[in-house]
Simulated assay, not measured.
Amino acid sequence: MTAATPPLRVIYRDAQLIAVAKPPGMLVHRTALARGETRFVMQTLRDQIGQHVFPVHRLDRPTGGVLVFALDSQAAAALTQAFTDKLVTKRYLAVVRGWGPEALSVDVPLREEDGIRPKAEMPAQPALTHLRRLACVEIPVAIERYPQSRYALMEARPETGRRHQIRRHLARCGHPIINDAKHGKGIHNRYFRDHLGCPHLLLHAAELRLWHPYAERWLTLTAALDAAFAALLARFGWQAHTGSDSARFDPPSVAQAATATLAEPNPESP
């Protein structure tokens, strides 16, 4: 570990998995998008703990927050299956332009954005995101044609995992995430970068709740915001939502009930 590569914040670790707080702007692993990058979450974590790690889900490069890795191939298979079986829930925080809806479920299919195949070759896939406004602010700055500018802190809970789903669904509602270069508006993005000290996409994977296949209990993981994001929330009076790094299991009684539910046969099965 060098001075240029600070250690990752470890949220939770046991014999099968490790959860860290991914910094925004850091790639999870080497890809064709790397283009000279030298810092990757997988490599940094491997060097930090002295053993190989296995990815079981992803976060986009500009998004920070909870990221889980398996510590061996068997655990990787079990955790990947938990994600496939949707035994996982995710909660994100996003700062958006305008006062977003108080509560809204966006059920709009999305085409995958892989940047390789023509869009016409990619059928739209179901995509569902539940949105809730947590806080809003009006600042006395004329960024566009109005003398004031409005922003909101939104909670997003995606039920599907399409690429850039939260960004695209919020933009479709007319409330793009700040510093979203593709779906947002440059004049607002520049103001946040130049005057509010926020150079990255204001989207954060705040919480991930998953069924631990070895402990057979629900594990809830949370990650605190990075310094720039947290400072912005404090500036807007939203510091109650900055969060903290934490990990907790459901009580055994809840876990036992969940196990029984998971084991119940599907009445529609043949």
Rank of each mutant, 00 (worst) to 15 (best):
T2F: 06
A4G: 11
P7W: 04
L8F: 01
V10Q: 02
V10C: 04
R13S: 08
A15G: 13
Q16L: 03
Q16V: 03
L17E: 05
A19S: 05
V20L: 04
V20Y: 01
K22Y: 02
P24S: 04
G25N: 01
M26V: 11
V28C: 09
R30H: 10
A32M: 12
R35C: 01
G36I: 00
F40T: 01
M42P: 01
Q43G: 05
T44D: 13
T44Q: 13
L45G: 04
R46N: 08
I49K: 10
I49S: 07
G50Y: 05
Q51L: 12
F54D: 00
F54C: 06
L59E: 00
D60V: 00
D60G: 03
R61P: 01
P62A: 01
T63S: 03
V66F: 02
V68T: 03
L71N: 11
Q74N: 12
A78H: 14
A78D: 15
L79I: 09
L79H: 06
A82Y: 05
D85M: 12
T89L: 08
K90W: 03
R91Y: 03
R91M: 07
V95G: 07
W99K: 15
E102F: 12
A103M: 11
S105W: 14
D107Q: 12
D107C: 09
D107R: 15
V108L: 13
V108H: 14
P109A: 02
R111W: 06
R111A: 13
I116D: 05
I116M: 08
P118H: 07
P118E: 07
A120Y: 09
P123G: 02
A124Y: 10
Q125W: 09
A127C: 08
L128V: 15
T129W: 05
T129I: 05
H130D: 10
C136S: 15
I139D: 11
P140C: 04
V141D: 14
E144F: 14
Y146L: 14
P147S: 08
S149N: 11
Y151T: 08
L153E: 07
M154R: 08
E155C: 07
R157I: 08
E159T: 09
T160Y: 11
G161F: 00
R162L: 05
Q165G: 04
H169S: 03
A171H: 09
R172T: 05
I177P: 01
N179A: 07
N179K: 06
D180C: 02
H183V: 04
H183P: 04
R190T: 13
R190M: 12
F192E: 02
R193K: 12
D194S: 11
H195E: 14
L196S: 06
P199H: 01
L201D: 02
L203R: 03
H204T: 01
H204L: 03
A205R: 10
L208V: 10
R209S: 13
L210N: 04
Y214A: 12
Y214M: 07
W218H: 11
L219K: 05
T220Q: 08
L221E: 01
L221H: 03
D226A: 13
G237M: 08
A240R: 15
H241C: 07
T242V: 15
S244E: 12
S253E: 15
A257S: 13
P265M: 07
N266A: 09
S269V: 06
